[in-house]
Each structure stands twice: as C-alpha cells, then as structure tokens.
C-alpha cells in the first residue's frame, strides 16, 4: 500500500509547485520552470535504461525530437488536408483538429516508444560503448530524415502559432504547458519508482550487474531490455511532444541537439543513478543552474557549466549527490525472503 501514497504525494507536490508559481506571479518563472521540469522527465526516462539497466543511451535528442515532430506533423495536418484531401476527409479533420496537447503527448510517447522498441531490437545485442555509438547513429539517421522531409519544414523548420489562452478555463497557455509538464514529471517519477521496486526492476539490475548470470538465472534479458528501451523512449518522446507549442518554432538542429543527450546523461550522473531520486535531484540542480546561467551570464555559459560539473562529479563523487548521504544512512537491510508480495 506504499505505492498509492507515494503517487499521491508526487501529484500533491506537483500541484503545490504549480500553486506556488502562480502565487509568485512572475511569468518568466513558468518559461524557465518548464525547461527544468522537462529535464526532470528526460533525466528520469534516461535513467530507467541507463541507470537501472546499465545501457548508456546517447540518442535522447532523437526520442525527444520524435515527440516534437509528431506534434508538428499533426499540427500541419489541418491546413494540409484542406488543400490535398477530399473535402469529406478534410471536414472530419477540421472537426477533430487541433488535437489537445495531452493527446499529442500520448501520440508522441507512442511513436517514440515504438522507435525505442525497434532501436532495442537492432542494438541491444551490443554492449557498452557500442550500444552508445549505435544510439548516437540513430539520432543522426532520424535527423537526416527530418531535414529532408519538406512537410514538417525540412531544415527551414516549422512555425507553430499557439493561441494565447487555452480552451481549458481560459488558462494562460504557458501555465497550461507548465502544468502538463509537471504532471508528466510526476508520472515518470511514479513509473521509475514502480519499476525500481518490482521484479522487472530487479531483473534490470541483474542485467546491469552481470548479464550472463542474469540469463543463467532465467531472467528474460532481451524482453526486459526491450520493455526498458520502449518505456524510456516513450517518456522522452512525451517530454518532446509539447515542445513545439512551447518554443513556437522548431527546426532540426536545435530539436535533435546533443544538449539533450548530454543533459540526460549528466543529470542522473550528478544526482546518482541508483534510484528515482538521483535524476530528480540532478535535473533540478543542473537544470536550474543552467537557467540562471543563461540569464545572468549567457546561454553558452550554461553548456560550459554542465561540462565542468559533470567532470567534477565523475572525478570527485562518482556515485552522485546521493553518494554523499550514503555514509549518513544506516546500513541497508538485506532483502528479507519473507517480505514482498511477489
């Protein structure tokens, strides 16, 4: 019964944060906060594959962009259908579109989840650095496809005009996006924590520590890894789906940017990769620092900042911020055979 309580708590914290932002009343907070919370989702998603299962994914930008470009493609469909589809079809599309953002998030998540599954099938037999290179290659391939796809603007990019308010209680659009991203962050943390404490999570941990031993124990390694890439990819895509509405202009170079991949790796590393709390801590600190640096120094400085912090952590605190507290915590109790319901 601990699970529902944690979920409830995560949602309450998200709601409280939103209320606090509203109370402060500074509009810029929502703009900056959106990016930080978006990184909470991305870092948590990356850690499900990278931290729990030990497979380093360098293709975060690709998954993020799949979500973003799914939104762009669907957004453009309305205009496109008026000129190119039979009137009957165009009418139906005009009624349904524009799709509400939660639906776009689900579609983006589904698509990038499928891409995660496919990528997993192609690359999961590779280990270590080879898997990382393969995921990097995936990002390059997808970016090339998008650059050459004129419908979504190719390398020119696409402009998305968003209305100033939403139909939902006339809520300010940026508030709405921020609230959605907060909800998504809460959900990803609930999912990550759920995985961590499940048989699925123990299976992933055994793959991370010794894949051959896991196989000998009958852990269905390929199936678990595929599920893991799909879930991780889906969450990254979900984080990317509202992005076009947030920035208003999407083009391949910045959407597929390596900065997502670097942040997705740096944030869990800085926070600690063993559990859900690490990526959350890492993304909140690094994300906020980047936002502050962008405003006070320059946006280029924020990149430098991550680099320096990542190097410092890898050298000085390889187990992340959570490693600092390990000594303070009482020695962990063994997993008791009689405990646990499964």
């Amino acid at each position: 019964m601990r699970m529902p309580i944690f979920s409830l708590l995560a949602l309450v914290v998200a709601a409280a944060l939103f209320a606090a932002f509203l109370a402060i009343g500074n509009e810029y907070l929502f703009f900056a906060g959106y990016v930080v919370v978006q990184y909470v989702v991305i870092a948590t998603a990356w850690n499900i594959l990278g931290g729990y299962c030990g497979y380093v994914n360098f293709g975060t930008g690709a998954f993020f962009a799949v979500g973003a470009y799914a939104t762009v493609a669907l957004h453009k469909l309305q205009n496109y259908s008026e000129n190119n589809f039979p009137p009957a079809v165009a009418e139906v599309i005009a009624v349904i579109f524009p799709l509400p953002i939660p639906v776009l998030i689900l579609i983006g998540g589904l698509l990038s989840g499928i891409i995660g599954l496919l990528m997993g099938y192609l690359t999961l037999r590779l280990r270590g650095v080879f898997f990382a290179i393969a995921t990097l290659a995936l990002a390059v391939v997808l970016q090339t496809l998008v650059v050459n796809w004129d419908y979504v603007g190719g390398s020119r990019g696409a402009t998305i005009l968003r209305p100033p308010t939403t139909s939902l209680f006339g809520m300010d659009y940026i508030h709405y996006l921020f609230a959605l991203m907060l909800l998504l962050a809460a959900i990803s943390i609930i999912i990550a924590r759920g995985i961590e404490r499940s048989t699925f999570g123990y299976g992933l941990a055994s793959i991370r520590d010794d894949e051959l031993a896991a196989e000998a124990a009958g852990v269905p390694t390929l199936r678990l890894k595929l599920a893991c890439t799909a879930i991780s990819g889906a969450l990254m895509g979900m984080a990317g789906a509202p992005f076009p509405y947030y920035v208003g202009y999407v083009e391949p170079a910045s959407t597929f940017s390596l900065i997502y991949a670097v942040n997705a790796i740096a944030m869990p590393m800085v926070g600690g990769t063993a559990g859900w709390l690490g990526p959350l801590l890492g993304s909140l600190t690094l994300g906020s620092l980047q936002q502050i640096a962008s405003v006070t120094i320059s946006s280029e400085a924020s990149l430098l900042l991550i680099g320096v912090i990542l190097v410092a952590f890898v050298v000085l605190a390889p187990r992340g911020m959570l490693g600092w507290f390990d000594r303070l915590r009482p020695k962990r109790k063994g997993m008791v055979a009689t405990g646990g319901g499964h």
């Binding site: 520590d209 010794d210 051959l212 896991a214 000998a216 009958g218 852990v219 997993m335």
Partner: peptide, 25 residues
C-alpha cells in the same frame, strides 16, 4: 540450471539476495 564459469555472482549483494535472484522465474 547453469552454474556459469567463474561463478558470476553479484558481489555487492548478500548471500541471500544472490540466492533469491536464482528464483527469478
């Protein structure tokens, strides 16, 4: 059941945890 070459245990886990991992199925 397979006992792999070089034992392939999970060194940071306890004896009991290692044994329980054998009962994953």
């Amino acid at each position: 059941g397979l006992v792999p070459e070089g034992r392939r245990l999970f060194p940071k886990l306890t004896v009991e945890e290692n044994l329980l991992l054998g009962a994953y199925r």
